[in-house]
Design a protein around this nucleic acid. Sequence first.
DNA 1: TTTTAAATAGAAATGATTTCTATTTAAAAC
DNA 2: GTTTTAAATAGAAATCATTTCTATTTAAAA
Lengths: 157, 157
Amino acid sequence: MSTPKIQNNAIDTKFSKILRSLNLKITPKRLAILDILINESLYLSPEEIWQRMKKQFGRIGLPTIYRNLEELSERNIISKVTHPNRQLYYYFCPNRSHHHHFVCLSCRNVEDINFCAFDELQKEVKRKLNGKVISHILQVNGYCRNCLNKKEGKNEI
Amino acid sequence: MSTPKIQNNAIDTKFSKILRSLNLKITPKRLAILDILINESLYLSPEEIWQRMKKQFGRIGLPTIYRNLEELSERNIISKVTHPNRQLYYYFCPNRSHHHHFVCLSCRNVEDINFCAFDELQKEVKRKLNGKVISHILQVNGYCRNCLNKKEGKNEI
DNA sequence: TTTTAAATAGAAATGATTTCTATTTAAAAC
DNA sequence: GTTTTAAATAGAAATCATTTCTATTTAAAA
């Protein structure tokens, strides 16, 4: 196998700790879902993750996938993608600090944007609107360098 | 009636022009949908708009509402709200220039944010990632001044 | 080991949204 | 003002991602 896969053991140990600290049981399926997302740079749909899990486990229900993805994303271990087609997508982002993403509409690649206008936004909302900011969505859609080079990456997902 | 409703005739004339310029037929239902959204400062679901339309028209299909809302939003006459519950919501925003919104999670009020980090974001994406920005989503969720005053507006929609 | 609360499988339900087809209607052409 | 025709609509039905439900299994605490 040419893909230099990160050691499962190391990951499992690392995530066991995280899961334990969040009062989530360390189940093989939970670790497998994390494993899939960690070794994939694209965002995936629950269905796609299910397909891969079925190869590993045989018996696995789609609701299990949905439930786990939701739990992991609620606890900020993985992130949700806000997609125009209104399906759910998830991906794992190792960057633990607050940031946003550049999402390629052609190849699904996700990259970090180390820029957040949150402070300015909060200031504006406080000063002009007298409101209180609870959360914000910022997502930038476009075409990544690879897709631009290849063939002006025109194909939408 | 105490609500100072904008003259329907004036609105109809104004939007007739817009609709015509977009090659959309000027139908009573299309105008009524615009009328509802214009006279409402909150974002509404297709279902809610349907309920109001039924009072005016009696016979009206829900698919008609969906179709029209989608067409109008595609043509940037109305805006979509990206909601965590993944239902569609729409509202009319008279501000025709590029801007973003502060969305109250309690009362559904929408207010303009005259701040956009688009330029900086585009610069960052171009310089660091070599990608091309096609679109972006920026939405700030929180509690508006009224809800904060009333009772610390805790009730989610 | 035993216990127990969390996690899972699988079937079934849900419900927002879309599709389909026949009918109606706005507005262009006459 | 009629006729024409392409767009818009009604209503029923389908779709399909997501959620719920219940019985069973399992991780991990006792």
